[in-house]
Design a protein around this nucleic acid. Sequence first.
DNA 1: ATAGTATGTAACC
DNA 2: TGGTTACCCTACTA
Length: 550
Amino acid sequence: MAPVTRPTTFPKVVIQRDSDSEQSSSDDEEEEEENGLVVGNDNTDKSQVGFDAKGKGKIPITISLKKVCKVCKKPGHEAGFKGATYIDCPMKPCFLCKMPGHTTLTCPHRVTTEHGVIPAPRRKTCKPLDYVFERQLRSAIPSIKPKYVIPNQVNCAVIRYHSRRITCLEFHPTKNNIILSGDKKGQFGVWDFEKVHERVVYGNIHSCILNNMRFSPTNDCMVYSASSDGTISCTDLETGLSSSLMNLNPGGWQGPSTWKMLYGMDINCEKGLVLVADNFGFLHMVDTRSNHKSGDAVLIHKKGSKVVGLHCNPIQPDLLLSCGNDHFARIWDMRRMEVGSSLYDLKHQRVVNSAYFSPLSGNKIMTTSQDNRIRIWDSIFGNMDSPSREIVHSHDFNRHLTPFKAEWDPKDPSESLAVVGRYISENYNGTALHPIDFIDISTGQLLAEVMDPNITTITPVNKLHPRDDILASGSSRSLFIWKPKEKCEPAEEKDERKFVVCGRAEKKRGKKGNDSDESDDEAFISKFKKSKSKKSNWKLSSSSTKDKNH
DNA sequence: ATAGTATGTAACC
DNA sequence: TGGTTACCCTACTA
């Protein structure tokens, strides 16, 4: 592979050919040189173009015609989609499990039927409290696992309901068809998914990311919401009136170092408190009766770090769980909230997107971390030094996506079913789709991968209905309601009330922002309608062969 | 069709 | 410690 050198005096240009790929005949050479000189071509190595570091010396300008990997910039391989299958850069650690030496396609956590399980050694370190807790709860947990019902077909789709990506979803505590949705812009939607044209959007409650919503436990018309605008609002769903409970930025924008954003939020019913946490590591409390601040803010995570999740234990009102960007989830006793007084600190390798007590007994904890692992702690009074189980699962952080959160099924009496969206795609009949995974967290087994050929976007926001076999998903700007296939009505009959378009992203200045200009959205919908009722949109991981292009 | 971009975190100095 | 920058499977819009 002799470099071809051009006879120039200053600076020298060296063309390196790609010896690995097809041998080009001399006829193509002129053309190839021109192509190679397009600096900025993604697959062209730019690293050697230019002068030396100080900009003085005359080093040769070397333009490589070798195809280089866009990830590691080395020749000999290329990362990216080959059709609907993504080929990883072999020089990087596995994109799924983050271990070196293999890529996603050959990752042992991908091929295994028990989806990426690392069972931790069983420990029996029962403290007296543990025995008491176990005995109180054991009777409520059936020994035979129920058959899981997986909502696996899109029954209602609310297309482009939001103009920005969806950040949170919340089912109504008593009205079965009502769901709330929040988006990155701060818009707050209330809709009936059996009558999707009947909807309400509140655009004035928050001015930026709506991070969390909770219904009032005492009045299911009232909803609390926490936003990156630094406020908590309380909205009456019947009147649409909203009041602000807290504003952490009363002085307005003074720059990013002082702007406070509210992320994690939960309600402690027994104490009548709204708990909310900010991006500087602090917990704030508001008394729901007086709507006034209760006590001082408490530093519960590393100073200056975002606290993204708060969860009150469903059984023991004094227990609070928090998680955040300092790589910890922490358990607190509400009676003693002080710096450093946490009962347990659950260490993770990366940012913890969510930490939830199990919904019925409150005795387990499930966390979702950006190290691509779902962690389970089986007993909150057991050994908290390490999780009882780690499940490798692709839910990487991406600045353009709402962070993934694994969610419990609130109606599963065995507290072992979880739902979580998947980042990496699967080649599904030639289309790259990102399924929504149902995982048995007691075994780590992947129970179902739910997908629809029309939903090609990643679905990081998922919630299971508290009473019905329904899954709600937020994928980019779209909302989807899934039901078990056998419970879905024939698709054609009711198509008209299943698709809603509104809230198109506003145009750039100088152009009209017009909701009637919805051609892209309508194309999406008609595609969806046409393909309805054609084929089953899901598969059981254990029974069907995977369409992986190995 | 394709280039541009919004954007959060962590690694780096 | 703070400021700068790289960044791998995005989802759009112009």
